[in-house]
Design a protein around this nucleic acid. Sequence first.
RNA 1: GGGCUUGUAGCUCAGUUGGUUAGAGCGCCUGCUUCACACGCAGGAGGUCACAGGUUCGAGUCCUGUCAAGCCCACCA
Length: 886
Amino acid sequence: MQIEKVYEPQQFEPHWAQWWIDSGIFRASNRAAGKVFSLVIPPPNVTGVLHIGHMLEHTEIDMTVRWHRMMGDNTLWLPGTDHAGIATQMVVVRKLAEEGLTRQDLGREKFEERVWQWKEQYGDTIKRQMIRLGASCDWSRERFTLDEGLSRAVREVFVRLYEKGLIYRGEYMVNWCPTCHTALSDLEVTHEDVQGHLWHIRYPVNGMPGRYLVVATTRPETMLGDTAVAINPKDKRYLDLHGATVQLPLMDREIPIVLDELADPEFGTGVVKVTPAHDPNDFEAGKRHNLPKIQVIDENAVITAEGGRYAGLDRFEARRRVVADLEAQGLLAKIEDYPLSVGKCSRCKTIVEPLISKQWFVKTKPLAEKAIDAVETGRIEFIPASWAKTYYEWMYNIRDWCISRQLWWGHRIPAWHCEECHETVVARETPRHCPRCNSSHLVQDPDVLDTWFSSGLWPFSTLGWPDQTEDLQTFYPTSLLITGFDILFFWVARMAMLGIEFMGDVPFRQVYIHGLVRDAERQKMSKTRGNTIDPLVVTEKYGTDAVRMALLQGAAPGTDIVLTEERMGSSRDFANKIWNAARFLFLNMGRAGVEPWVPDNLEEFRPEPDGETLEVQVEDRWIFSRLNACAEQVNRAIEQYRFHEAAQVLWHFFWHEFCDWYLEFKKLRFRENSGLTAGWRNTLAAFETALRLLHPAMPFLTEELWQRLAKGHANRPVSIALAPYPQYSNEKTDYAAEREIEILQEVVGLARKLRTESKLDPKQQLEGALYSRSSALATAQRHTAAIEKLANVKLEFHSGAAPKAATMRSTAEFDLVLHIPKTQEEAQRKRLEKERDVLARNIANSERQLGDETFLSRAPAHVVASIRQKLAEYQTQLAKIDGLGE
RNA sequence: GGGCUUGUAGCUCAGUUGGUUAGAGCGCCUGCUUCACACGCAGGAGGUCACAGGUUCGAGUCCUGUCAAGCCCACCA
């Protein structure tokens, strides 16, 4: 079989491989435990995927992948429908199931066709809806459809909440985005610190010529809408002004002085202007004092007719004019620099304008209480657990949720207003007549719902709710939600609240919060920042598996993921290492006349004894023992979501145990025309197991190699992905074999160090002698050939201590003396000096501790014992060095 | 203003319940075109674990404070 020298991922990975890494899916199957993991390591652009616990893995993976695929650059992001893409596919999958088909049966192309057909069908519905709303829309770009089922669930939830009194409509101060023309929830407003000014304005007090109240404001243009000034009732400076009025400059309006806690005597002059229509605090104060609300800024951030001569001006232009005019009239007391935080629309970055409008709200307190309880009682668990605090912090201080948006996409609010009697009807189906006046002139509320309202229903709406479907019963509650912390409040908290409210149980048992992917400069990767690593580009460059491995290695819980090309590069090296290990095996199989082979029962295989010696070769016993240890660590790491650990264990095992020792050892064993011996079966079975272990981290490479290895083998799974994942078993651990190889490694290590330190040519075979008092000597002697090959030394073996020689290196067990030219002895002497220092320090340390009565009495026995043992070792070694030092 | 997180080798990060010589990858140094792999092999240097106290026989790990960085929340004119 011809195998290329360098692994070229593009050549072997099916192109849909790119989709996988697009969504960064990490998959591990643990069928023995009846579990299927399918986890998302956050790639650029993906914020979170709901994991439906026991859903068939291929279905879910495909949906995730396709979801992201469909969210490609030429796709318009439709708030309110962002998850409809997934829902669409779920429906398609379900419809296929009705026809007795699976996605695999259909194939990738056909399946995608079906999804798109379905989209087409419902795309018109949305289109009509948009036209009805009078919105213009650009159909040159692809967009998602609303899922009919999802819409039904949304209406149902809305109506039920309304009937419970948990949804209300009211006039409130909302964050208004003048560009998007919609209200925003508090969460959608990002605050930025900017350097602004504090303008101090004189308001003349009526009836007291020469007397002014100085108010300070960061937004002077809002003074046009002032309907009062407030002073603190306890503020002694202004006691005489209680009941007085001031004259509003520029507008020539008499406005009252009200007594209100709003005014903080400590701040500025202690006087504050009150603009109920344009400031949330003032709005509240206005309600307390029954003040009129004068809207002077409209939805376009332009001054209204109420703004007198400033009408028609943009808010910032108006600010300049107002300030200039005040200054001209001598009413501007002073201007000081003032740092403030301005709220901006998280989508378009326009400065939001607080405006009064009628909006729909959800009373969140009662919902939040149950959601808090779910976490407190452990029905929902956060991983890492520290995120629960953040969750509580928000939940305990939760505010009512403004759910209406003035956008032309998304789910319409199922509310109708009667044009005759102004009654509002909330209903599941479009009402024909007003229940109050029987008028037929009903108009549906033009607003749509916040994206997260429908998203919050995802765990059950996608499963067919409100129908009691089989899916719902099977998959709700889900086992795990994987997401970034950036949508903890937006999505996770809302799913928790709504899930508990409508399903009576939590939507997920565990929430795994992963970090954000950051670039080399630690910047969060985001589309808007433009610093995303394009998965297609790096996949092309390094290979899918390499990119995936790089993500895994950085995926420590509770930390961000730094994704750098360096890491991807080294992962690519790892991929190549695996590739070449396979190449090595295949080349030797060719020489030995061995056909590709895998065991019949993969997990049942145990290393076989040699036909002649009737013993299992020790390196085979060793590698299977190590494979077992690796399986244990990897399985545990995955179970605990410690993916970086899993990646590291796999890496170290394959590279430094399998390749560096096992394969090197095997070079001694391979013979021409040997045929499929027990040794070969052991080797191939070990490699096969290693591939299965590596598969979750390196899916494509391992699949490729596994297929080649298992070629022609009838009795096997069609894919490595369907083969059992290696499991730990106590019975597979072989301590004796591990000990034996350790001894070998020790001796080889000694020889290599001695050689390199003496700056000797690695090609030159050295002679020397190995000394030991223990039985390890015999063990080492059994591996004379291996030592000779791996360290390139020819040794004699002697029982007992070594004679004095400078060219000696020791461990507790062995002394190795090599015949090295005299010229190198000086270097060795220096090395020994250094070693002696370290040993002396360690001995002093250990002795001090062992001389400490409190330590001896309080420390556990095994700690004391281990120190005693180490001390003995240090002393033995020191004695050896001192013996030489004469 | 409140809350959270982080500070460990030149860089990017691990270090699960406190246990004695603190690890990995990359980078660096030395030597090797050894017939799987230079995307490689062998060996090596490099850390007073941000700082100061405390608890403990024992602290990178627990507690307090300080400094620094980042994030989230919050209506302060």
